[in-house]
Nucleic acid binder design. Sequence first.
RNA 1: GGCGCGGUAGCCAAGUGGUAAGGCAGAGGUCUGCAAAACCUCCAUCAUCGGUUCGACUCCGAUCCGCGCCUCCA
Length: 466
Amino acid sequence: MAFCIHNTLTRAVEELHPAEAGHVRMYTCGPTVYNFAHIGNFRAYLFEDLLRRHLKFRGFRVTQVMNLTDVDDKTIRSSREQGLPLKEFTKKYIEAFFADLKTLRVEPAEQYPAATDHVPEMITLIQTLLDKGVAYKSDDGSIYFSIAKFPAYGKLAHLDLSGLRSGARVAQDEYEKESAADFALWKAWDEQDGDVAWDAPWGRGRPGWHIECSAMGMKYLGPSFDLHTGGVDNIFPHHEDEIAQSEAATGQPFVKYWMHCAHLVVDGKKMSKSLGNFFTLRDLLGKGYSGREIRYELLATHYRQSLNFTFESLDAARAALSRLDEFGDRLRLIAGGAPAGASLPAWAQQALDAFTAALDDDLNISAALAALFDMITAGNRAMNEQALAAAGAAAVLGLLQRFDGVLGVLQPEQQQADGEAQALLGQRQAARQAKNWPESDRIRDELKQRGWVIQDTPQGPKLKKL
RNA sequence: GGCGCGGUAGCCAAGUGGUAAGGCAGAGGUCUGCAAAACCUCCAUCAUCGGUUCGACUCCGAUCCGCGCCUCCA
């Protein structure tokens, strides 16, 4: 079975066939670096990470580009409010973004181009559109794309232009446009922009938002590439506009497959600061959750399904992970140092097949996780029955590692017990050997207060982080 | 008004024209000095109402409810 994905362009699940066999070129819309990213943003980046990891699991080479939008209304406004040069202002949030990705165990993309480093490419692209007559200059010096010149406009969002309502959200400052739906390729400089400006043949200003993704996508992936992803809210207008300006410029299909992930809601409601349900990654880390736990929670719901984030499900994620960890620990004990060359037990092979088939089906993560948990049940049973030899355990560990290449959640955080806890554990063992149960239980309670749970195993007692 | 998504057990969440995966929580049991962990067992008729069908939760229609997009929000 081949890897199938849902293509927004066709609204159908299709087999993925990259232009170059075995090599997928994908562009993933990145952050606007004017603030710390919130968990809704990370939901999208984690979806893309899962996509990337599954592609590699299936043997594809992946070239992924993620842009950093470091010039737009928000970055300019906020940097001016703080009295910082734009670059200096965005640097802080770019660094935070990468730190957060690391916390969430997101594999780095091949390229992270910043918009401000690619203005010349954008100017070239805009010039091409002007030369072809699909863009025009307005009275104030801004450049707009004329959607009337691009008949296919609306094919991604499946929008009928005549249905576009020029309603309340069309800003008044856009009176220069010929048509309400035309979008800015270039914004002429005005006072609000301060010293943020570049010189173009048609005048001073800064690029519009959409043009950066077209220019940078084509620079790093070619005029026509395989995959482009983002949040559903990017379908229109952002991605629709990317298609228009790119295809109008090159005459080639811009992207073959578009994938979009649904939004995250918190307690069934959209995140908003006024509701008090707005969380950045840092907020959750501050509440004691780990990046791994948050990753699991954000990953465990199918990407086209809106994800309802709750602390209850975050706690459920924590519990599920500890069961996964436990399974790995048991396997390691049995495997010892056995080489992983042995063939898989039937139940593990079954899990591998089900796991692969699930993710091949448009990244059906729920079914993939079910395959993993089914394997854990079967494996635990085998171990309870002493039916798993060292070589088999080593083979299953190897499989677990392959699964984790896709999931990125199976490697536990370091949790080395401190010396005092270790000493208490030793004292309890002594008490147990003396069959001094009251003392033994007292020490167990004390360890619990310090955040450690004891598990007595055939191989001796273990400490687990509470 | 237009386009689109969803309503499945206490919570989260897959799935399918033939009588509902998985996770968390809960109950009982095995194991254990007692626990912990693990394992076993139990726990839903799929928003409502019609229709199609031998048979629908799965297809069609209607209704109710929630949500997203409709110019720069992942």
